[in-house]
Every structure is written in structure tokens, then in C-alpha cells.
Design a protein around this nucleic acid. Structure first.
Length: 373
DNA sequence: ACGTGACCTTT
DNA sequence: AAGGTCACG
């Protein structure tokens, strides 16, 4: 049976990009609640689905290593993927090839053609992690403007915003309402198992693509998801998918990437189960709206505690106006990438919450979390 | 515009 | 009570 790749064993083919840890910390970025589908399958090795393929990622001091599992998917997906990638490549022409094959001394070298597949995979990775955004520069700017940011910036380095698939992001975050991370992870996993196309099996784990809009829109889906423990969110998921297909079409979500932030957010809020918080998450994490600052109870507490934030009238719950005001407050403080800064500022709160509920895979994080210095 | 309660399920 | 949303007053 196929196994998860491990860099040190050299049994699988690995490639890498130059990438220092101040630009990207895989563990923090993949486990801080942006995406719910990455798992630490070996120490420092993260396996998940990206662009319809299964990947294992790991990093050394100056490199991001990746392995893409082949020999897995059905022909249709594969052809579709290549067609799309072909289009993307005409737009972005990359002359230099920085990837190379990892060959440890004690192993026999593996012959590899650095071809279109490599370029394409490298581009997928750069796009997903938004590596063109210089995080080190942003950290410096946020720190210069904000003493509280400086306090945690040295511990939680390399936390960057993923550029997720909008469909996966939207339907995952509809699951987050009134919920906690460990349960959300289980729900999203069951969602993919049940409605997504199978990709491959590694050790005891099966990997699936995220379900398509049409799969989610089917009338049978609500009952199905209720059986899987989605509760009242089951109806939101099915109805939102149906509403998108019926009134907008398949490309609508992607199209919101080129809409202004507030317009995209309002569009999302017309969907059932999507309020201000979820809409902001989708805007920030999949629609290129770096200024979107999702306001939840944690962020509100932090705003009050650390930033001495007080609304005019003492409020008990987070109203529309409070969303706007706190968002504007942080945008003024941190600038156009305020949403990115916010994900760093709240990370210790979220990881602590994780630690209460999740019993695996976070040892490295919790160690840093509870023994920062 | 703001406040309240219900909503599924698990800890 | 959990990383909210919706439907009411």
C-alpha cells in the first residue's frame, strides 16, 4: 500500500523552493484554523489536498519541500487540471527554475525531468501560500505601528494567509458557526468523504477532493449531512450551494476575487448561513481581500483587553456597527493587510482553544505556545 | 439599529 | 459554552 512521504527516508521524490521560516511556518499556518484539512502525518510533515491533488509538505531552515502524489486520480480530473494550468501558464511566464530534486548521499539518484509538471506544481504552491507577499516586511510595518504586535511577533513568525479555493473556504466556514475546531475538522472531513471525489489512499488514510457545488446542491444533501452530525448547518450548506448555482452560476465565487471588498462581502451575506463573520473569513482567506478583518468574540475580547477598545454604547453582542467599527480600528492600525496581521495577533488564543479540544499533532505548537521564551 | 432566543452537537 | 446566524420583537 502507498505510504505518506517522509523527507528523511528519501523513498519518494521531493522538490523544494527557497523559503525561510520567517516567511512561512508550516505548522502555524496550516493549523491555525484557516484550513481544516491539513494533518501532520509525520513530524513536521503536513499532508493535505491542494488544487485537486494530494501533497505532503515539510520545511528546513531555508527551504519548503513538497511531494505530490501521482498515480491517483481519474483521467477527467487530470485532464481538467492540466487544461486550467495551461491557461495560467500563458499569463505567468516563469523563466527561472528554482526547484531541484532532493537526493541524499546514501540513496541512488532519481532521474527526473524538470518539465511542465514541475513548473505547474511550483506555481500552485506559490499561489496557495502567496509567496510573492513579503511577510517579513509586513511584520516590520505592523510592529512599528503596534506594540502589542511586537510582543508576539517574535514568537509567532511566518504566519501567512493561505489563498484557498473559494468553494472549499465558503462551505468550510459555514460549518464554523457556534462551533469549535476539533468538531469542524471532523465535519469537513466527513463532508469530503461523502460528497467529494476520492484521490488516493496513503497508509490508513483516504484523501478526497472537496465536493463540487453541484454535489453540495443536491436535494438529498441536507438529510445526508444531518445524519453526519452537521446539525442545523446541513440546510445552510445545501441551500447556499443551490442558491449560487441557480442565481449566479459556477464561476460566481471566483469572480468575486475581482470585486471590491465590501461588494464581495455583501454578495456572500445573501447566502443562507453566511453572516458578517463568515463572509469576512471567505473574503480574507480565498477572495484576495487582505483588509478583511473577521470579528468574532475572541477578537472583540482582544480589542477591549489589549487595545483599550470601547464602543460608544456598552454592547453585549457583536452588532453590525461593532463589526464595522472594530474592523476599521484594526485597518487603521495595521493598514491594507490588516486581516493578515489579525491572524497573527489572535493565534495564541486560537491555539490555546485547539489545545483544549485537539489531542494530536500540535505538540510543537503548544510547546511554543506555553513556553514562548 | 439593537436585543433576545433558538438552533445541532459535543465537551 | 463553543471562532455565529436568523427570525423575531
Amino acid at each position: 500500500m502507498a505510504k505518506h512521504a517522509v523527507l528523511s527516508s528519501g523513498a519518494k521524490m521531493w522538490r523544494c523552493l527557497p523559503c525561510v521560516k520567517s516567511e512561512l511556518r508550516l505548522d502555524l499556518t496550516l493549523a491555525c484554523g484557516q484550513s481544516f484539512r491539513w494533518r501532520e502525518t509525520a513530524e513536521g510533515h503536513w499532508t493535505g489536498v491542494m488544487g485537486g491533488r494530494v501533497w505532503t509538505l515539510t520545511q528546513t531552515d531555508d527551504s519548503l519541500w513538497y511531494h505530490v502524489y501521482k498515480n491517483q486520480d481519474n483521467r477527467g480530473e487530470e485532464c481538467d487540471r492540466k487544461r486550467k494550468a495551461g491557461v495560467a501558464f500563458q499569463v505567468e511566464n516563469k523563466p527561472e527554475k528554482r526547484s531541484r530534486v532532493a537526493v541524499k548521499e546514501e540513496e541512488k539518484p532519481v532521474a527526473v525531468t524538470i518539465g511542465q509538471d514541475t513548473e505547474e506544481e511550483e506555481e500552485t504552491l506559490r499561489d496557495y501560500f502567496q509567496l510573492n507577499v513579503k511577510l517579513v516586511d509586513l511584520y516590520r510595518e505592523w510592529g512599528a505601528a503596534d506594540p502589542h504586535f511586537r510582543r508576539i511577533a517574535d514568537i509567532f513568525t511566518g504566519v501567512r494567509m493561505l489563498r484557498q479555493d473559494p468553494t472549499e473556504c465558503l462551505f468550510s466556514f459555514i460549518c464554523t458557526s457556534n462551533n469549535h475546531i476539533s468538531r469542524i475538522q471532523g465535519m469537513v472531513e466527513r463532508l469530503c468523504q461523502t460528497l467529494g471525489a476520492p484521490l488516493c489512499q496513503l497508509d490508513q488514510a483516504s484523501y478526497y477532493n472537496f465536493p463540487s457545488l453541484s454535489a453540495l446542491a443536491d436535494n438529498s444533501v441536507e438529510a445526508c449531512l444531518r445524519d453526519l452530525g452537521f446539525g442545523y448547518r446541513a440546510r445552510f450548506l445545501q441551500q447556499s450551494a443551490k442558491q449560487i448555482l441557480d442565481t449566479h452560476g459556477l464561476q460566481w465565487l471566483e469572480g468575486l476575487r475581482s470585486a471590491p471588498y465590501l461588494q464581495a462581502r455583501d454578495a456572500l451575506r445573501t447566502l443562507p448561513g453566511v453572516g458578517t463573520k463568515v463572509a469576512d473569513c471567505v473574503c480574507l482567506m480565498s477572495l484576495d481581500k487582505a483588509a478583511a478583518v473577521p470579528i468574532d468574540t475572541h477578537v472583540w475580547q482582544i480589542a477591549k483587553r489589549d487595545y483599550n477598545y470601547t464602543s460608544g454604547t456598552a454592547q453585549k453582542s457583536i452588532t453590525d456597527k461593532l463589526h464595522r467599527d472594530i474592523g476599521d480600528f484594526f485597518r487603521k492600525l495595521w493598514g491594507p493587510y490588516a486581516g493578515w496581521a489579525q491572524s497573527v495577533s489572535v493565534i495564541d488564543e486560537y491555539l490555546s482553544a485547539c489545545f483544549c479540544h485537539v489531542s494530536y499533532g500540535l505538540s510543537a505548537i503548544t510547546t511554543e505556545c506555553f513556553h514562548p521564551l
